[in-house]
């Protein structure tokens, strides 16, 4: 259950951003999580809903972009079939993981601020 400590990290980072912007509330937090990041998006959301209580994140929504894991040959770009050996069947070289397939990032935070 490392999702709990990760959710606490999301809250901590968001609180800093909200303080810097003198925000009144947090509307939405955008994350990107790759299939091979080792983190379950649903568990992270559940944990976030627990730890956001009593903070400026209360009521904020986690918007998670999921990136599927895919491997391909870095030379000829042929896709490796799911579950197959991670080696290009033609070139024989090691396959490369798609960009962001192991991402675990906060992309953007939407804050509510006083209108001018």
């Amino acid at each position: 259950m490392h999702e709990l400590s990760l959710a606490q990290g999301v809250v901590r980072r968001t609180v800093v951003a909200a303080q810097e912007a003198k925000a009144k509330a947090v509307r939405r937090i955008f994350l990107r999580i790759g299939e091979l990041a080792g983190v379950d998006g649903r568990q992270l959301t559940s944990a976030f809903e627990v730890v956001r209580g009593g903070t400026i994140c209360d009521g904020a929504v986690l918007d998670i972009e999921f990136v599927a894991a895919s491997w391909s040959c870095p030379t000829c770009a042929v896709a490796i079939e799911s579950g197959a050996p991670l080696r290009c069947p033609t070139c024989g070289i090691a396959a490369q993981l798609a960009k962001d397939a192991d991402a675990l990032s906060i992309l953007r935070i939407e804050l509510e601020v006083d209108g001018v």
Binding site: L6, G9, R13, A25, S105, E110, D114
Partner: peptide, 24 residues
Amino acid sequence: MCESCGCGDPALMPVDVHERLLAG
């Protein structure tokens, strides 16, 4: 953000972070 009348309605402010969740 309400630009026209300055009524002070809550307005959205996007903040780019682009940081690893495990940055700490």
